[in-house]
Design a binder for these strands. Structure first.
Lengths: 144, 144
DNA sequence: TTGAAAATATTGAATATTCAAGAATTGAAG
DNA sequence: CTTCAATTCTTGAATATTCAATATTTTCAA
């Protein structure tokens, strides 16, 4: 008899993909109330520290590659949620800033995202959630 | 003083996305040795139980939506890795089967995927890995 | 048994993402 | 200095994904 292969559901890569897909779907659903994709929430959240962030830095932070980010930022500039400023210290760089309109939207989105986190805390539990976060952080660390 | 918002890196949704992206990137890298995207590995793995699986069932299992799966299967049929059979019991359905060529490839891919899991076990630890898997499974459960 | 609603899969058009190449600027070695 | 390599961002073409509509088959109520 040949040994049966372990099912795909036992692979860490698969479990991560599945969990990510599900949580992302839920978040998407909430943010759709404001007609905004998850990536734009991330961008606004990162920029809402009020500082300028270069495109490269942003791309890393929001988990998008450069061309995709450029095109998404183009849309957000059209919607006057963010704006570009050439970095005076290094003119290869572009610094992104959040606009007032962006700040207003960002607050609304944050509250929707917080709703979701609270919903997860309820159904999944306080302890499991913080333990899961801890493990994910350390997995990410150990991968660099 | 306004209370600063929690950074995005504290959101479960973000940590999941980040971890998933990283692990997926590593897996992608290994599978690229055989020139196969992660989704095809998943498809072959699910089908390698030798049974027929309908498109809907497959789409759920491999985390793709229907049209995307249809088009990916089209490619895999061209590559003679899988084939379609109309379900005799319900002719709305199409049953997917893995071919012999698909089985050979699937074995190679599995060994690459297992390599990765072992690499994670080494750098991240046995205990953390199994604990993380457990928590992910229960998060997925609690989301349904 | 018929006809309307539901389920399943695919298609084509609209969008979005990615890859490879390009433009601009900086860094740094000779 | 000058020039060549590296860095940063954007663009355009090639691919891939998604949404909405369609075709087919089944289910089930009247």
């Amino acid at each position: 008899m040949a040994k049966p292969n372990s099912p795909i559901t036992e692979h860490l890569a698969y479990l991560l993909a599945q969990a990510n897909r599900e949580i992302n779907r839920q978040l998407e659903l909430r943010l759709s109330k404001e007609g905004v994709p998850v990536e734009q929430w991330r961008i606004l959240k990162v920029l809402s520290d009020g500082n300028g962030h270069s495109m490269g830095e942003l791309a890393d932070a929001v988990l998008l590659n450069h061309p995709t980010l450029t095109k998404m930022i183009d849309r957000m500039v059209s919607d006057t949620l963010v704006y570009r400023v050439q970095d005076p210290n290094d003119r290869r760089k572009v610094l992104m800033f959040i606009s007032d309109r962006g700040k207003v939207l960002s607050r609304k989105l944050n509250s929707l995202a917080v709703d979701q986190e609270e919903h997860i805390l309820e159904s999944y539990g306080d302890k499991s959630t913080s333990e899961l976060k801890r493990l994910l952080e350390s997995l990410i660390d150990s991968s660099n």
